[in-house]
Amino acid sequence: MQIDLSGKTALVTGSTQAIAAGRARAGPRVAVNGRRQESVEAAIQKLEEDTEGGSFVSAPGDITTEDGARQVTGAVPDADVLVNNLGIFGTTPPLEISDDEWRRYFEVNVLAAVRMIRTYLPGMKDRSWGRIMNVASDSAVVIPAEMIHYGTSKTALLAVTRGFAKDAAGTGVTVNSLIAGPTHTGGVEDFVYELVDPELPWDEAQREFMAKHRPQSLLQRLIEPEEIANMAVYLSSSFASATTGGAVRVDGGYVDSILP
């Protein structure tokens, strides 16, 4: 399957190397977002080294604020593909999650995505083509006791996706969620070592974490970011034109359900 997004502009918020690189290999101009100009430029430099022929544009700005979102819009006035990848997570005993923490998780994991959809969906509808993906989590369905606030925010993101997909009905724009399973990132490595012996080598730590804390995974390992990126690139393409309003699982079989 040859996916060609040449001539399109894709914006990835809270950009990861893997998702941005996956987009670039399919041919579009990829706007890389992060809070700080320096980190965005560093990410672009690394992407240019690793992705032959990739085209990247810097789009710094803290999209959890209206001013930051306007900064991103100034750099990228229109986008054909929007990937709401920005998110935070962490563990807190349920009864110790403060009101401020609940608000912070909602602001970052839900409202920032809503803000970006409001910004770019009208132009997509006018052009009769667009792809929006909200990166959710298995925690949206299987709420972890140690991070209820995170899981709840991702559940809300599924509802946001379904609602905006209805708003875009019949326009040629699709809106989907990606239910990502336990994924191997730097932040997740830190999280794993919060729950297992920090002296263990990484391979052993990962196996122990999956066995003790994510035993329902059929993959029985952490998912690599490139595996999430592959699904995101597919959903960005014309091949996925009949997939909208969905919660598409890239979870390694973690969610024990026949239906998505």
Rank of each mutant, 00 (worst) to 15 (best):
M1D: 09
I3L: 05
D4N: 09
K8A: 04
V12W: 10
G14I: 00
S15F: 10
S15R: 01
Q17K: 08
A18M: 11
I19M: 09
A20V: 08
R23F: 11
A24E: 07
V30Q: 01
V30G: 01
V30R: 00
R35T: 02
E38P: 04
E38W: 06
S39G: 06
E52G: 13
S55K: 15
F56E: 02
V57C: 12
A59Q: 09
G61C: 07
I63D: 09
E66W: 14
E66G: 12
G68H: 14
G68Q: 14
Q71W: 07
T73L: 13
G74H: 12
L82T: 15
N84Q: 11
G87N: 04
F89M: 00
F89V: 00
G90K: 14
T91A: 05
P93I: 00
P94A: 09
S98C: 12
W102V: 04
R104H: 04
V108M: 11
N109H: 06
L111Q: 00
R115Q: 04
M116S: 10
M116K: 06
R118K: 15
P122Y: 12
K125A: 00
R127C: 03
G130F: 01
I132H: 02
S137Q: 03
D138Q: 11
S139V: 08
P144W: 13
M147F: 05
M147Q: 12
H149Q: 15
Y150S: 07
G151N: 07
S153M: 04
L158P: 13
L158T: 12
A159P: 03
G163K: 15
F164K: 06
A165R: 15
K166D: 13
K166A: 15
D167E: 13
G170H: 09
G172R: 04
V173A: 05
T174R: 11
T174E: 08
N176F: 02
N176P: 08
N176E: 09
I179N: 10
G181W: 09
H184K: 10
H184S: 10
G187I: 14
D190A: 13
V192H: 09
E194P: 03
V196W: 07
E199M: 05
E199Q: 13
D203T: 08
E208A: 04
E208N: 00
F209E: 02
H213D: 06
H213E: 05
R214I: 05
Q216Y: 02
S217H: 06
L218N: 00
L218H: 04
L219F: 12
L222Q: 01
L222H: 03
E224W: 01
E224R: 10
P225C: 02
E226R: 11
E227H: 00
I228D: 01
A229Y: 02
A232Q: 10
S236R: 13
S236P: 07
A240N: 09
S241H: 15
A242R: 02
T244M: 04
G245N: 02
G245H: 01
V250N: 05
S257G: 06
